[in-house]
Design a protein around this nucleic acid. Sequence first.
DNA 1: CATGAATGAGCATTCATTCAT
DNA 2: GATGAATGAATGCTCATTCAT
Lengths: 191, 191, 191, 191
Amino acid sequence: MPRSKKILEQIKNEKKQQILQSALELFARKGYHATSVDQIAQKAKISKGLIYNYFKSKKDILLTLVNSLFEQMDLALPQVKPSKLTEEDIERYILTSMQALEQNPQNIKLYFMLYMQPDIEELVKPLVENYIDKIVNFLSPYYKSRGIHEPRSHILSLIASLDGLSLHYILLQYPEYKEIIKTIIQKFVYI
Amino acid sequence: MPRSKKILEQIKNEKKQQILQSALELFARKGYHATSVDQIAQKAKISKGLIYNYFKSKKDILLTLVNSLFEQMDLALPQVKPSKLTEEDIERYILTSMQALEQNPQNIKLYFMLYMQPDIEELVKPLVENYIDKIVNFLSPYYKSRGIHEPRSHILSLIASLDGLSLHYILLQYPEYKEIIKTIIQKFVYI
Amino acid sequence: MPRSKKILEQIKNEKKQQILQSALELFARKGYHATSVDQIAQKAKISKGLIYNYFKSKKDILLTLVNSLFEQMDLALPQVKPSKLTEEDIERYILTSMQALEQNPQNIKLYFMLYMQPDIEELVKPLVENYIDKIVNFLSPYYKSRGIHEPRSHILSLIASLDGLSLHYILLQYPEYKEIIKTIIQKFVYI
Amino acid sequence: MPRSKKILEQIKNEKKQQILQSALELFARKGYHATSVDQIAQKAKISKGLIYNYFKSKKDILLTLVNSLFEQMDLALPQVKPSKLTEEDIERYILTSMQALEQNPQNIKLYFMLYMQPDIEELVKPLVENYIDKIVNFLSPYYKSRGIHEPRSHILSLIASLDGLSLHYILLQYPEYKEIIKTIIQKFVYI
DNA sequence: CATGAATGAGCATTCATTCAT
DNA sequence: GATGAATGAATGCTCATTCAT
């Protein structure tokens, strides 16, 4: 079962899940504006009106998806004490994250879509900042113990690299993809 | 008596630039779909109808902007023979590119917007692929001469890192930005 | 609780008829292009948007009207075996048809409008051809039994005469109308 | 030289002729509403603005064409004293008229288009009525001398038949066309 | 005379949202 | 809860007409 479904299951109501799942697929495939509420309803096999029992607007659906996405990303962080992190833990974390991307590009498309959706930018910004801080805090002890006294910008550049790779993967799907992950891991993890 | 052809041509070009500039600002700030032709016209201080004297559709405006963006990016490539590239050339190229981003974030927003616009994805993909190939070809001799026999994935990961950083910069504008550029340069250029 | 399917179906059909009736009147009075969807909606006392719940385009409304027109014309054919047709049957058929024209000139205006609408000409042509063939087949036995061995062109000239008269009637409404029908019947039926 | 050109030549101004000729072709091919002033200008190889030096509106162009059409139809009447008309004169007149249709279907398309253009119907009606009266007056002596005491409705049915045939010819172009003309002549002329 | 840039009203169509049932 | 008919504002685009040059 893909990770995204797990998260959506936390939302008890089955209808609501159907709506969110349908919206996610359509938003990722066609974009937010190009997806109509009608299409979401049809894909979810419910009536258009019912959507407004669960969500107060189309944008509300998007925001719910976003929150669910960030919850899911939180859960993906390894369950290890930061002070005990090893190279292998980090490598595994990166590989797992990138695998999630391959298996479920919809979520990542959604994630990037948010960057470009200026009318919700302000809502997403704190979520992204918070998530980045979490990763920085999580990885800092490791880099400090390896002699990097100001690891923040180091970690930020790692995240940027992975985000950039994800972006390229979605548009271009070039075959060197796995190779590049390795390159990034070598440059940023084993130091 | 009709106006001379030269003057007409000039007026036409100025108007066209006006429209393009207005559209760029609005597309970057609000997104392509959320920007109406009417808004572009108002910002350019012309009537809606006139836009269609210069562009055959809203999409045509976008594509013109995209093409101009890629032309600009081409021009930013250093005018040096690839075989004679030095570390400093590449560093300078990266710094200049990132400076362009700071000075003109609209263009980059437009660039990323294209990744998320499924209905034009197909039009942009070849442009991006072509541009990436250009950079790869341009930088390959340098990396080969430094002992990297398959430099393609190495260069791709550099581009991904810079793209990722640009993306973060647009949304987050974190203060470590300059620091991260340096980190990336150190990891990917001086090897 | 949603409305029962039967009731919904009924509402739908009534609304559809309302729209079609309004469109027919306007198309006949002002022409297809000179009639706006807005005007149809106003005449049908519904909102413009609702029209698109029932018809996928303005042209779709026109085509529905045209099909219904040809269905009506089919029904007007006498329910007699062609081989048993008498002079009186044909005369009655012609008189009934022309009476329908008097009572409902809109339909005939629509019919002629199609001849002049180059963008739908191709759609209507087969309908007209098919209808003409039907009449030719229907009347042929009668004329053959009266010694006309190649009745097709004879029947075609009858149809042309009636169409021409209808056309004149619509524009000119001259008082000799009934007289002319008689003349045509005498010349083409009683032979 | 086709007859229509001759008529248009009476209008001295060459530019005006160009406009009218272009408009005629476009109106006949695409319909009045579907033809833009721009297209007329392009076909006439002049600027859009110049059209308004010669005609005060698009509709004015149409009306000028209509008047020219009726003038031309007047000229086509045989130059024989009505009292001296023979069967052969009438037959020749009908054959000539129908030949004109074959050679220049544009004019006839325009003629029928007028029937369907309700906003100019009122302007055309007197022209048509006048023309019909002319033919009636012209042919009446012939029919009277053949024993038809009220020839008006007889002549009207002849005109209707020919108009109906013309209409069919334009849309359907069936091969029996020539045959039908003969049938009509036999029924309406040789009595 | 001649041009074509410019306007503004109008058009078909879409769609998020509401609401009676 | 559930439906889908209905609304109305918005959108991209067209085009007859005007007018400065």
